[in-house]
């Protein structure tokens, strides 16, 4: 018997699994969660737990119902639940949060075939559904038991110039649960980069473009507005979602610039003060095309043949 093994590619395997990657994301989100409990009180933790639990339950029930393999243990539903909860203010009624979870897990993820088949970020679909359904509840920021008092209600995006850098960095202002403490989000982002879970390209290009274009369009306090609102949360944890971001580095740069452009346009000229959600969703839709345009050519391969007309 020959000792030679014959097999088809891939020949190099990594020990990483979806589960370990998702666990890293959860670890990276923990500082922001702790910060939110300090800032807004215990209810922030409660909302997050409920959201995670409900997302996992929904995924389990749906997959049981359709007799599909149950993929709850890959922890992706937990991450989605965390991110949906991070996108609502601490005063959000629980049933509204559950509607967001339902939209995220069932509508955006499972109906399209589960993890890896969703063409939009599930958590952001949850946010959009909540935004169109419960606009008032989602944009009323009243702190309850934490450091932020009930008086601070508007998002600093409405007027970033009136907040100091330190206030923005540590999130001492109104906002949704997960987005306010910039320092904690950055810490988690650095952890993800060090662990190799994400490449820093998309967040850096995205945030850079947003700051530059906000300045170019004449927006108020471009640097400070980068720390305010959902930009950091979106750029680090949502825009970098494997399923809904381009594969190649070149594609990632294009993706980041596009997201920055849309975010800056909406923030400076739009009716909404926040543009991150729409930017990432629009970007997600473009991802297949970006992937097509930036396909890597093997060394020595012929230039790609022009596609026949009419195909």
């Amino acid at each position: 018997m020959s000792k030679m093994n014959l097999s088809v590619s891939p020949h190099i395997r990594s020990a990483r699994t979806t589960q370990s990657i998702m666990l890293d994301v959860i670890i990276a989100l923990t500082p922001a969660l702790i910060a939110s409990v300090v800032l807004y009180g215990f209810r922030a933790l409660l909302l997050t737990q409920i959201s995670c639990g409900f997302c996992v339950l929904l995924e389990f029930l749906y997959e049981k119902l359709l007799k599909r393999p149950v993929t709850v243990s890959d922890l992706s539903a937990v991450v989605t639940g965390l991110l949906v909860a991070f996108n609502v203010p601490v005063s959000m009624p629980v049933w509204m949060l559950l509607v967001g979870d339902l939209a995220a897990i069932i509508l955006a993820k499972q109906l399209f075939g589960g993890l890896g088949c969703n063409f939009m970020n599930p958590a952001l679909v949850g946010r959009i559904v909540m935004m169109f359904s419960f606009t008032t509840a989602l944009t009323t920021y009243t702190g309850s038991a934490g450091l932020v008092d009930a008086a601070t209600s508007a998002t600093p995006l409405a007027d970033p110039a009136s907040y100091g850098f330190m206030e923005l960095l540590f999130g001492l202002h109104g906002g949704v649960i997960g987005e306010t403490c910039a320092a904690a989000l950055l810490l988690g982002g650095i952890y993800l980069c060090v662990r190799g879970v994400i490449k820093p390209i998309i967040p850096l290009v995205y945030i850079g473009t947003t700051v530059l274009l906000t300045w170019a369009f004449g927006g108020v306090a471009p640097l400070r507005s980068a720390l305010a609102g959902g930009l950091l949360l979106g750029a680090i944890y949502m825009a970098t979602d494997y399923v809904t971001s381009p594969i190649t580095d070149k594609g990632k740069v294009i993706f980041g610039v596009f997201l920055g452009l849309i975010t800056a346009l909406i923030r400076v000229f739009g009716n909404y003060s926040e543009g991150v959600t729409f930017a990432i969703i629009l970007g997600n839709i473009l991802v297949p095309y970006i992937n097509d345009l930036t396909e890597t050519r093997p060394i020595g391969a012929n230039p790609p043949a022009k596609k026949e007309a009419g195909k």
Binding site: V99, V129, F132, S133, F134, T135
Partner: peptide, 9 residues
């Protein structure tokens, strides 16, 4: 009420 249901989406 879930407002989005009555809207276009």
């Amino acid at each position: 009420q879930i407002g989005i249901i009555t809207q276009t989406p």
